[in-house]
Every structure is written in structure tokens, then in C-alpha cells.
Simulated scan of single mutants.
Amino acid sequence: MIPANFEYHRAGSIDEVLTFLARYGGNAKILSGGHSLIPALKLRLNQPSILVDIARLAELRYIRQDGQHIAIGAASTHKDIATSALLAQHLSMMPQAAGMIGDPQVRNVGTIGGSIAHADPAADWPGVLLAADAEIVLQSTGGKRTLAAQDFFLGFFTTALAEGELVTEIRIPIPAAGTKSTYQKFSQPASRFAIVGCAAVVQVSNGTCSHVRVAFNGVSDSCFRDGNVEKALEGKAATAENIAAAAAQAAQGVSILSDHYAAEDYRKHLAQVFAKRALSAVAG
């Protein structure tokens, strides 16, 4: 497995990256962690004429509070997120999810920006970002635009990222007091990708659930917010009975994947099981 010939450039700035993308268009690929791109190169599923390495761009690697948001640079590694005290304080499902990704080698090198740009349906970040009401900042030589996560993830390995654009930042609103979050996953034991992953965010005040956000990855050909589960628990008392009833609505009306890891019926069952675990962790 030998890749086709390509030029390699280590970018020194965001502006330099955007210049390469504008110049080469679809013939340029961004190299960050490389865990998805490099195998595709070896199999010649991707044959770019130029690789632009952004892994060492300090201006894309940060986790900081920005007003009422937490801003995460796209080149922040999974380990950066797993060890972030700021995220642990405000949105604990982010470090929790990061710690479940791959193995130490993957977590030390892989980046959140690369993961969401690839949009693997079994990747962890897409579902987590949907539940977090995150926004994705995209930049090109023409300027910046910001998309809600639900508008960024479009389908099977498909996003709203246009030619010439780079994911530069993920912005997450700081949840209100009383909000808890979690990410629960049934993972493929070798790759640690999600067969079913469920992210949940719930605010509980005086025993009542509000701002319920539940999202899945690994279940369908793209991540999705589960409105049926959310509606079933929104405004309800945080009781075991209400949580079980809400979880039973998981993955209703969704086209569910079936493969050698899990058949459709089993995946749907797992979605309900892990929705219950997630909701119990944040509202039980």
C-alpha cells in the first residue's frame, strides 16, 4: 500500500493554509492527525496533489473561554480536550468522550477538527457537538462563516465544508447552572469507534428536566438529534419512570445501520439502552 505522489507543505499560518486551499482547490488535502487520511492515501482512495500539514499551528490549538462560549481550536487534540479543566467544569461530556477515543497514540495526535471534517458516522465528536448546541467556524480566503453543528453534518461522510474552506474553531455555549452532560458508548473493541454513542445534556431544576438534548452517532449513516427522546422528557419530572419512557423512544423513525458489528434490531435496542444510561446519568 503505497500512496500516489504528492507535494508536502507544513503550513506556518492559517493564511498560508487558506492560500494553498484556494490555489489547489480539491487537489489539496489538510493533514492534521491523519488517522483517516493516511490509510485512504495508502489505499489510493484519495490522491491529492498536495498535503498541507496544520498539526503544528499553535493558532489552531487552544481551549479557552470566550464570553459565554468555550472556544476550541480545530487542531486541539483529543488529549487536550480530555485533560481540559475548563471543559470538565462546564461540559464534562467533552473530556469524557475524548477519553474514549481510540488509544493513547490516537488521542495524542488526532484532532477534533479533523474528526468532524471527516464526519465518520461512527466517530464520537459529531453526536457530542450536536448535543452541546455547538457551532463550527469555517474560514476561507473570502472570510469566515459559522454554522450550527446540525447544519454542518449533512450525511454519510458529508459536511457543509466547501472547497477552499478550513474548520478553524468549535464554539460551545456554556450551559446554565444545574446542567449536566454525559457521553455513553458501546464501542467496537479494536477501533473504539462507536457502534452506538449517545450524548445527553439536561438541566434539572426543582426536579424538572429542561433544555433536554440527546444525540446519537453510530446508529445511522450520520449523527442526529433525537427529538422524540427530547420531547418525551422535556418538562417532565426527573424520575426513573420518565427516563425509561423517554429512552424507549430512541431511534424511532430513523434509518438504522446494519453491518457485521450489529444488526438493525440490535442497534436500535442498544440505542434505547444507552439513551437510558445517558439520561439516568444526567437526570436520574
Rank of each mutant, 00 (worst) to 15 (best):
P39G: 13
H78S: 05
G114R: 09
I136A: 13
I70P: 00
P48F: 02
D133G: 11
S92H: 11
H78F: 00
Q139H: 08
A122W: 05
Q105K: 15
A82F: 05
A123H: 00
A88I: 02
I112T: 14
S76P: 02
S49Y: 09
L60F: 05
L41S: 12
I136T: 11
D120L: 04
I72S: 03
A134Q: 08
P48V: 03
S84Y: 03
A71V: 09
R44H: 08
P48T: 05
I72K: 13
L87H: 06
S76N: 11
A88S: 12
R56G: 13
H90L: 07
A55R: 09
K79A: 10
Q96G: 11
A98E: 11
A119K: 01
Q89G: 02
Q105P: 04
L86E: 13
A88E: 06
I38F: 12
S115A: 14
I50T: 12
D133I: 13
R107S: 02
P126R: 14
P95C: 04
G102D: 05
G99H: 00
A132M: 09
A71H: 04
A123Q: 00
L86C: 07
W125E: 02
A55Q: 07
I38M: 15
A75F: 07
S49T: 14
I63Q: 12
P126D: 10
H78D: 03
M94N: 08
I50P: 07
P121T: 13
L60M: 13
R107T: 01
A58M: 02
Q96V: 10
P121W: 13
L86T: 06
S76T: 10
S115I: 00
K42E: 10
A117I: 03
Q65F: 10
I81A: 01
P104H: 09
S115E: 07
A98M: 11
A85N: 13
A74F: 01
R61T: 03
A123N: 03
T77E: 03
L45A: 15
A71T: 04
A74S: 15
A97M: 14
H78T: 00
A131M: 05
S115N: 15
V128F: 01
M94I: 10
A97Y: 00
L87I: 08
D124V: 02
Q47W: 02
Q65H: 07
A97R: 04
I54C: 09
R107F: 00
L130W: 01
I70C: 12
I81D: 01
D124C: 01
A55C: 05
V128G: 03
V137N: 09
K79R: 15
P104N: 11
K79L: 14
